[in-house]
Design a protein around this nucleic acid. Structure first.
Length: 131
RNA sequence: CAGGUGAGGCGCUCUGUCGGGGAUGCAUUAUGGCAUCUCAGGAAAGUCCGGACAGCACAGGGCGGCGCGCUGUGGAAAGCACAGAUGGGCGUAAGCUUAUGUCGCGCGUAGCAGAAAACAACCGGCCCGCCACGGCGGACCAAGGGUGAAAAUGUGGGGUAAGAGCCCACGGGGAUGUGCGGCGACGCACUUCCGGUACGCGCCCGCGCGCUGCAAGGCCAAAUAUACCGGCACAUAAGGGCUGCCCGCCCUUUGCCGGGGGGUAGGCUGCGAAAGAUAAAUGACAGAGGGGCGCCGCAAGGCGCUUACGGAACCCGGCUUACAGCCUCACCUUUUUU
RNA sequence: GGUCGAUUCGUCUAACGGUUAGGACAAGAGAUUCUCAAUCUCUAAAUAGGAGUUCGAUUCUCCUAUCGACUA
């Protein structure tokens, strides 16, 4: 089991992000709202972390929350998701800065929800394991 | 010891488990692997000034707009720094803070109150005339009262009908000249004079500024549409031109293929770095220690809380704002002790 | 990243540096009405915060906070 989080797991294309925000399924657990869209043929999940500037004016707090969400994903993605692959857009919605444990619980629940929700309607058959 | 003033500096440390950005090197089966080094601040912030750099404009001059305004030095420049001059304000003090061209050109403004806010006369003072003896009329005065943020140089003496820089002495303000000191702003002394306030963050005077900003600018360049060029196909179909008509030739209309210019998404550069990203790394968690504060305790110590402000996106010089706390030096004041 | 603008009663707004900061709607009290509405009278309520210039600041200058616009 590895906890790696390389740069390719950052979702960086504008088209992918806009389609994810418009077509993705919405998942919510208290401080975090997430958009999830299964994308099977890549071989690894991809993520975007966002904290609105409207809620936190100071860049320090936004950076801290994005780092905490990223650490929670990094440490739990393999245990919760397994070899399931999808794109996630995580938006922090809470009004104040929550501690790491609250964020970790929310992230775990959201990842599990995303896996169950995507696996239910049609099991994507074209998922290939990493070479 | 306590409180304060000024100048300068620091702004948590270690360990563990995981994880990132960049550079270099190695091997290599190349959406990857290994090793070494390195990775946020004093304000990185606000974007308030100035520069560097870039594009556009530009013979020269003018209008307009904006900014600044004591002196010297530093500086590429600055609403910059340091040192100083003069006046005002605050503080017992160390010191802090603020202002500085000109209203002895001109113009403008000075609400309300007040007689008058810049050609002063309400109450008042004094003299003359008239009468009913307290008023009226005429002339002179600017000391006293009252209003106001601000009222015409202060005190004393002379002088006068009463008064007044009307005159004199001293003081205060301003100006000319001379001498001395200072690089200079200016200061000191003497001489000769002047006498109606304030406002420069209104006009004015002097000086400076071309405008816009790295999302500036430059390069590469999918998809779609396509200027233009070439070829092929469909046809001799439709329209037009040459013509009186036919043939013929040319152009346009349709489709496909190739080339091709501008240019969008996007990318590279600008942006070289003892950080250098581009949906944006510089971290997360746990434990221990250190500092500070509070409580308990004679003490040793124990418990609890706290450990700030804040995150680079081209760079540099300043300014301003935010900041738990700690350290160093110099100085001031109060009390106590020696 | 850069360039600009705004902030006045609960709401929308006005103001030459010069009263007690004006008006409309809303709110409260009273009158009118058998009661309500409408109408009339009255009341309370604000210059975003902090410094400076000035005799005097909503207005002029600086700093801070908040909100908004433009710019690929």
């Amino acid at each position: 089991m590895t906890f790696a989080f390389p740069k390719k797991q950052h979702l960086a294309q504008r088209e992918a992000i806009t389609s994810l925000a418009s077509h993705g399924k919405v998942l919510f657990r208290h401080p975090i709202k997430a958009f999830c869209l299964p994308a099977g043929d890549i071989g690894y999940p991809r993520y975007v972390f966002t904290v609105p500037k409207k809620l936190f004016k100071r860049a320090v707090k936004r950076n801290l929350l994005k780092r905490r969400m990223r650490e929670a994903v990094r440490l739990n993605q393999e245990a919760v998701l397994g070899d399931f692959c999808a794109d996630f857009l995580l938006v922090y919605i809470g009004k104040e800065v929550c501690s790491y444990h609250v964020i970790e619980a929310a992230v775990k629940e959201i990842l599990a929800k995303g896996r169950g929700l995507a696996a239910e309607p049609e099991k994507p058959a074209d998922i290939k394991p990493r070479p």
